[in-house]
Design a protein around this nucleic acid. Structure first.
Lengths: 353, 353
DNA sequence: CTGTTAGCGCTTTCAA
DNA sequence: TTGAAAGCGCTAACAG
């Protein structure tokens, strides 16, 4: 088949010329719109096969002013949240005849913008944005939304009159995780995965702080610990390594915590590893709660108490919101949905001795 | 800015008309090709800003016959292999001015094909394919390669005279993992993550079988265990759940293994969990080796002995191969590269008692 | 049922 | 340094 290579692909007109009909007739056969006699249809299809014709999507999209394609911008695809989200978005879109192109923007505003531009340049019909907020990226996103491109954001702050949003109630999730530890009798509860300064943008941390406050437990900033140093070249979410180091730091305090709420399950795993290394038994000496309920959480030793967020549902809703915006661009009211999380109690937490 | 919404975007001609020059002049300013006097350039840029002009990438691509975009088709983005791969591919491409669109095809030939079609329809300049092989998908891929689209495959079998390939030496990796267990004195060594019938396509399993063979240890098919039932709706790679169930099955044998080689780290984690549940100590009662060296492997209890494959390097090489094909489409010889894996010995393996 | 016309928005090519 | 013409490959709209 090598002879196929490099020959310029056949066009609609080539097919039309071969059959002896107008390009429009071929177009009708290919796209299935409009009437064509069975006889010509067959001749056309024959020529299509013979010439190895494939319709040029670019030209088609240019003419139709739509691409039947949606873009998804995510931060770390290694984050299980992103994975499930992407799959759910894809499935929902696919059922409606849309394709999904995913762009990853690891952790910089610059990459966010590059991804958005790439998508817009390809005239995709809409964008789902699931990266973390950042000033420049959000500015560009605002421009894009202003220009009439349908946009939906997932799991992040962003306000725009034409942009819908869907997220899990991370605040409440964080609150309940902490509440659970308090209920078990813990008073010194650490938070691993972010610094106290991050409380402005990190709902899970806010929930933690709020729960402590409600029970009149004073906030000890030394108990809140996250990544050290620059964030360059590390994933945007909190990792095993961060959990490990954070736990070590907490254990070196004069009065270490008896329980820890980790920002996510990875971080929790790292924290467990550090605790065991220090000779602590989980949950007897140290209780740990994670967040996300990744598949892993069931198989840690001991199985991890964690907060499950409905990732699949978020993806599905995001896709549905976007499709709605795509079909009636003007009319819809801005919609903002927040889904409940669920505390999954396993064996990594137990009453304070 | 609401007034921006829905107004049809400005075109090159709109800008030209505003300034009072030819569209071509505006084009020159925008793309930076050709000479334009400083004076007109400024006037043009002013109008561009005023009209909020953005060049239409579709039209541009249609005319230029190139999109500066590459597609990546991967199976499960939750697989850490895919993640690192995608990031490496993206970085390498981005440095050369290319965008990356990722399509996921969870685990069916149909989705593979859909993804490939979507990419081809958008006239991307090349494709990196990292899904598992399957008959229909490969047929479509062959057609695509035949039609002159540059293609590179990663970590999978696929032969085509114009398609380069890059992968890790999974056979050797599997061999060395098993060899390591044999060296430690183990004779009954299980394999979790695939069935004996999969040996045709699964290099890691082949390595296992070959290592046993070399040491005259007979193959006991009951010691090789993988997913049960249909593969629908489960990830394409082997999971914690599969490891867990596989281990349980092995432990219920009349004569259970003293060591286990798991197809990947997730599977290993599940296996560890089942073993502990059965009251076995790792590594004293049961030695375990994983594969991939995910971040997790460092934080299991005990830390996991595993085989590291150079994921980042594979991505980088794949991108470079593709870029080369894109620039000199005809001339290049087919290239097939295989990279070595590295056995990382941690604490989940120890000499047979 | 089929064809013609007229672009989609841009850039290549040639001319001024 | 700028412009005019032509057309990338397709389809909406209308005509027959």
């Amino acid at each position: 088949m090598r002879h196929d290579i490099r020959r310029k692909p056949a066009t609609l007109s080539d097919v039309a010329a071969t059959v002896g009909v107008a390009p429009m007739t071929v177009s009708r056969v290919i796209s299935g719109n409009g009437y064509v006699s069975e006889e010509t249809r067959e001749k056309v299809l024959e020529a299509v096969k013979k010439l190895n014709y494939r319709r040029n999507g670019l030209a088609r999209s240019l003419k139709r002013q739509q691409t039947d394609t949606v873009g998804l911008v995510i931060g770390d695809i290694s984050n299980p949240f992103s994975t499930e989200l992407a799959n759910a978005v894809r499935k929902t879109l696919s059922a409606r005849g849309y394709n999904l192109f995913i762009c990853i923007s690891e952790h910089s505003a610059k990459e966010d913008i590059t991804a958005l531009e790439a998508l817009v340049d390809h005239n995709i019909d809409g964008i789902v944005v699931a990266t973390r907020s950042n000033k420049e990226g959000d500015e560009r996103l605002t421009e894009i939304a202003n220009s009439g491109v349908p946009v939906v954001v997932v799991g992040r702050d962003f306000r725009h009159e034409a942009v819908d949003s869907i997220s899990a109630d991370n605040f409440k999730g964080g609150f309940e995780a902490t509440q659970h530890l308090i209920d078990l009798g813990h008073k010194r509860i650490g938070f691993i995965g972010a610094a106290f300064e991050d409380r402005g943008r990190l709902k899970r941390l806010q929930g933690y702080i709020s729960a402590l406050g409600k029970h009149k437990i004073s906030i000890d900033e030394r108990l809140i610990t996250g990544r050290r140093g620059s964030s360059t070249d590390t994933p945007g979410y909190s990792t095993e390594a961060i959990g490990y180091e954070g736990m070590k730091r907490l254990l070196s305090l004069p009065k270490p915590p008896t329980a820890v709420f980790a920002r996510n399950d990875f971080t929790a795993v790292g924290a467990m590893s550090a605790a065991k290394e220090a000779g602590l038994a989980i949950p007897q000496d140290l209780a740990i709660v994670g967040f996300d309920d990744t598949p892993l959480a069931l198989h840690t030793t001991p199985p991890l108490t964690t907060v499950r967020q409905p990732m699949r549902v978020q993806g599905q809703i995001a896709a549905e919101m976007l499709l709605r915006r795509i079909s009636n661009k003007d009319e819809s009211e801005t919609e903002e949905r927040v889904l409940d999380c669920e505390l999954i109690i396993r064996e990594s937490t137990v009453a304070q001795r």
